[in-house]
């Protein structure tokens, strides 16, 4: 697997669910109103685990569980959190029929699992979290920022996470 050397992306390996949770929490602590995080990865790669971490970083005390059936779970943290899951949608997702804008342009943080279903309707700025299964506990993680807000956010995240 050749490393992705795009200047703005961050490509690394998480060695455990606990590490994934901590990284998510760090990302969550940096989020601001109207931020959108798009999670992309196959079944069982840990998308919900990432969301649980991000929510901890947003000081959500509610239990964070999969919204596959409920479609949208809402939580109250230091910001409102909209946890959306597009897994059950097989048709083309246009923002109008889902009502995605109602969440994304609100003052809360929107976290979208299976976001590859709706890339066309995402706003100009957002962060993609790509997850790949390597072994039972290890996952490759690629953070890909879109828009200057998220390029800067990723720089801060890198510094806080990997700077010694």
């Amino acid at each position: 697997m050749s490393p992705i050397l795009e200047p703005n992306t961050l490509d690394f390996i998480s060695h455990s669910e606990l590490q994934t949770h901590r990284l998510g929490a760090r990302l969550g602590s940096l989020l601001e109103p109207s931020d959108v995080i798009a999670l992309v990865g196959e079944l069982g790669t840990g998308k919900t685990r990432w969301v649980q971490g991000i929510c901890q970083g947003l000081t959500v005390t509610d239990r964070v569980i999969s919204p596959t059936f409920t479609l949208v779970n809402e939580y109250d943290g230091r910001l409102p959190v909209y946890h959306i899951d597009l897994y059950r949608l097989t048709g083309a997702v246009d923002g109008m029929s889902f009502g995605l804008e109602d969440y994304m342009y609100d003052s809360g943080v929107t976290l979208i699992e299976w976001a590859d279903r709706a890339m066309d309707v995402l706003p100009d700025a957002y962060m993609v979290v790509e997850l790949y299964h390597l072994s039972e506990t290890r996952r490759r993680v690629v953070l890909r920022p879109y828009g200057s807000r998220f390029v800067n956010l990723l720089k801060v995240f890198k510094k806080r996470t990997f700077a010694r």
Partner: peptide, 9 residues
Amino acid sequence: RYGGVFPEV
């Protein structure tokens, strides 16, 4: 028809 449950629909 739409391919899933869409909240707005």
